[in-house]
């Protein structure tokens, strides 16, 4: 214990602080040197006329806007999506939910066959007992939210879920092993395991169409223009205008996934 007297302790502490500060200073100097070099390099790359300008141009980032005030619940989007993408029966890449508010405060959600046959006034699967009268109601079309912070890509163990440069979340069907982690991770229920191929499947915003300049099948089929799709980086696109002119929300913002699919006219009851 004799070697641990106060003097020695102080010395070692002093030395320790000295070492740390020294290392810190060195790191800082080195770091700032790297920063300066990087800063110096940037204009160099830009020197050749116009090339960098072209590279720095904003790439297309897609966005989707759903106007629940316009949706009439006809299910055209669901049928179009199923035909375009071979979605198996009882599975849905997009579907429409019917929210009904009753006199007693009860809120009921129906979505018979994902609304692929539309909604009928009679024969609802879920409704309150007794003779409650509906006081308010609307339809909410749902689809993949193509989140910026994607839980589904994070959990994929084989790198089969990925994001394209345009921000579209896709599944690589050849790499997917069908473990279903992403199906569980998605807070919106947008994914399913395809019963035939046994790999994860989801809404692609019709990537094969949008990459050719076409609208997604559901947007094309919607008779009331409740769905808007486009490049949000282009200030003149239909969606940019719609996003400027409306107050929009996202589903389950508390999940922190930052969805690229946005909604007009959501009530707090919508989940």
């Amino acid at each position: 214990m004799s070697g641990c007297d106060n003097d020695d302790k102080d010395t070692s502490r002093r030395e320790f602080i000295k070492t740390v500060l020294d290392a810190g200073a060195k790191t800082f100097t080195f770091g700032s040197l790297i920063c300066i070099t990087a800063k110096l390099r940037l204009p160099e790359a830009g020197a050749s006329d116009g090339v960098v300008q072209k590279e720095l141009q904003m790439p297309a980032i897609y966005g989707f806007l759903v106007d629940t005030m316009k949706c009439i619940g006809c299910g055209s989007c669901v049928r179009a999506d199923k035909a375009e993408n071979d979605v198996p029966e009882q599975y849905f890449r997009t579907w429409v939910e019917q929210y009904t508010f009753y006199e007693n405060g009860e809120v009921v959600v129906n979505s018979p066959k994902g609304a692929s046959e539309g909604f009928a006034e009679k024969g609802r699967a879920f409704q309150p007992k007794g003779d409650e009268k509906p006081v308010k109601g609307f339809f909410v079309p749902k689809l993949c939210n193509h989140c910026i912070n994607t839980p589904c890509i994070q959990v994929c163990p084989v790198g089969a879920s990925y994001k394209t440069p345009e921000g579209v979340v896709l599944v690589d069907k050849k790499t997917c092993v069908g473990c279903g982690y992403c199906v569980q991770a998605c807070p919106f229920g947008s994914r399913y395991i395809h019963p035939v191929t046994n790999v994860a499947d989801k809404c692609t915003w019709c990537y094969h169409r949008i990459s050719k300049g076409l609208k997604p099948a559901c947007v094309l089929a919607c008779p009331v223009g409740a769905r808007t799709f486009g490049n949000v980086n282009d200030a003149n696109s239909e969606i940019s205008k719609a996003l400027r002119e409306n107050r929009v929300q996202v589903l389950k913002s508390y999940m922190g996934t930052n969805p690229r699919t946005r909604y007009i006219g959501l009530d707090s009851e919508v989940i």
Binding site: M69, K70, C71, I72, G73, C74, Q98, Y99, T100, G118, F119, A120, E121, P134, G137, F138, F139, P223, V224
Partner: peptide, 9 residues
């Protein structure tokens, strides 16, 4: 589209 449903716009 055209048969009345309460929720329809």
């Amino acid at each position: 589209c055209h048969v009345k449903t309460f929720e329809r716009a």
